[in-house]
C-alpha cells in the first residue's frame, strides 16, 4: 500500500451530476465513522485514563482529587485482585485450549466429502450466534442440580456444578467451549480447505502415514489461521463477563471483569476501577502482541 490513488471523477457519473468529487464522497463515508469512534470509544478511553489517577466516585458529588499512581499501587498490591487475575488466566487457558481442541477436531471431521455438509456446518455454528445472556441462562438450567438435564444424563444426582467452589469455573469454561468452539471450527475449516489437495496426494505417494502427514503438512499449513483463532478467543475469554456473571456467583469463579464491574458499579470506586480497567487493557494488549509476533514468525517459516 505504498501509494494511495484518488481516481479522477468520471464526468458522466451521477455523483458528478450532483457536484460531488471523489474526495467529498470519501469524506462522506469516512467522517461519520470517525466521529462515532471518537465520541464513543476514544473520548471515554482518554477520559477514564484521567479518572484513573483520581479518587473520583460517581455516586457522590465530592470533587475528584488527584492521587497520582495511588490507585495503581493499591491494585497491584492487592492479593484479591491478583487472585482474580489467576482465576482469569486459568479460565482463559482452559476455555481457549478446549475450544481449539474441539473446534479443530470437528473441522478435521468435516473437512471431507460427507452428505449434507453445508447443513451440518450451519447447525454446528448455531451456538456462536446466540446471545451470551441467553446461553448463560439456559446453561444455568442445564446445570441445575435438581432438574438439570446434565445431572440426569450423567447420573450425578444433585451435584452442584455452579455452587461447587471447585467446579464453578470449569462449568463456566465448559459453557464457553460449547459456545465458541464453532468459531475455531469455522476458521480451521477455512484453513484446512486451503491446503492444496495435491500435497496430500504427494504425501500419500511418498508413503507418509496419517500422523506424519498431519504433523508435517496439515498442522504447519493451518497453524497461522489457528493462531488467529487463538488471538481472538484469548482476547474474548480474557474479558468474559456476562456468561460468568449469569452462571455463578462463586468467588472461585470471579473473573477480573466481574471484579471490575463490582468495583465500579457496586462499590462505586470509579477512579480505582478505571485504573483496574487500564491494567486489564495493558495486559490484553501485551498478550496479543506476543501472539502477533509469534504469528508473524509462524507465517515466515
Amino acid at each position: 500500500m505504498a501509494t494511495t490513488m484518488i481516481t479522477t471523477l468520471d464526468r458522466s457519473s451521477r455523483a458528478a451530476a450532483r457536484g460531488l468529487s471523489d474526495i467529498s464522497i470519501r469524506n462522506l463515508f469516512i467522517i461519520p465513522t470517525v466521529l462515532f469512534l471518537i465520541v464513543f470509544n476514544i473520548f471515554p478511553l482518554i477520559y477514564s485514563l484521567g479518572y484513573s489517577f483520581t479518587d473520583f466516585r460517581a455516586s457522590t458529588n465530592a470533587p475528584a482529587n488527584f492521587v497520582g499512581l495511588q490507585n495503581y499501587r493499591d491494585l497491584l498490591n492487592d492479593p484479591y485482585v491478583w487472585s482474580n487475575f489467576a482465576i482469569t488466566a486459568k479460565y482463559v487457558i482452559i476455555s481457549v485450549a478446549g475450544q481449539l481442541l474441539v473446534g479443530f477436531g470437528v473441522a478435521m471431521l468435516l473437512n471431507r466429502d460427507i452428505p449434507m455438509k453445508g447443513l451440518l456446518t450451519t447447525l454446528l455454528l448455531l451456538p456462536m450466534m446466540l446471545s451470551m445472556a441467553v446461553v448463560g441462562l439456559f446453561w444455568k438450567l442445564l446445570y441445575d442440580p435438581s432438574f438439570g438435564i446434565i445431572n440426569y444424563a450423567l447420573g450425578l444426582g444433585t451435584f452442584e456444578w455452579l455452587s461447587d467452589p471447585k467446579m464453578a469455573l470449569y462449568a463456566v469454561a465448559l459453557t464457553d467451549i460449547w459456545m465458541w468452539s464453532p468459531f475455531v471450527m469455522l476458521l480451521s475449516l477455512a484453513g484446512l480447505s486451503a491446503v492444496p489437495k495435491h500435497l496430500y496426494e504427494a504425501a500419500a505417494i511418498d508413503r507418509a502415514g496419517p500422523f506424519y502427514t498431519f504433523f508435517r503438512i496439515t498442522l504447519p499449513l493451518v497453524a497461522p489461521i489457528l493462531m488467529i483463532a487463538v488471538i481472538f478467543r484469548t482476547m474474548e475469554a480474557f474479558k468474559t463477563f456476562d456468561l460468568a456473571y449469569i452462571l455463578t456467583s462463586q468467588p472461585t469463579a470471579e473473573l477480573i471483569s466481574i471484579r471490575l464491574y463490582k468495583m465500579a458499579f457496586q462499590e462505586w470506586q470509579t477512579g480505582r476501577s478505571c485504573a483496574l480497567a487500564y491494567i486489564v487493557l495493558i495486559m490484553v494488549l501485551a498478550i496479543t502482541n506476543i501472539y502477533v509476533k509469534y504469528l508473524n514468525k509462524v507465517k515466515e517459516r
Partner: peptide
C-alpha cells in the same frame, strides 16, 4: 511404491529443499 512428479511441483511449503528431499525417507515406519 511409485513416485509421482506433477506439473504443479507440489513441494511441501515452509521446508527447505533438503527437508523436502528427506520427506519420503523420514516416516517412522520405514
Amino acid at each position: 511404491d511409485v513416485a509421482l512428479v506433477l506439473q504443479q511441483y507440489s513441494l511441501y511449503p515452509r521446508y527447505t529443499v533438503r527437508e523436502n528431499l528427506e520427506f519420503p525417507l523420514k516416516p517412522k515406519i520405514r
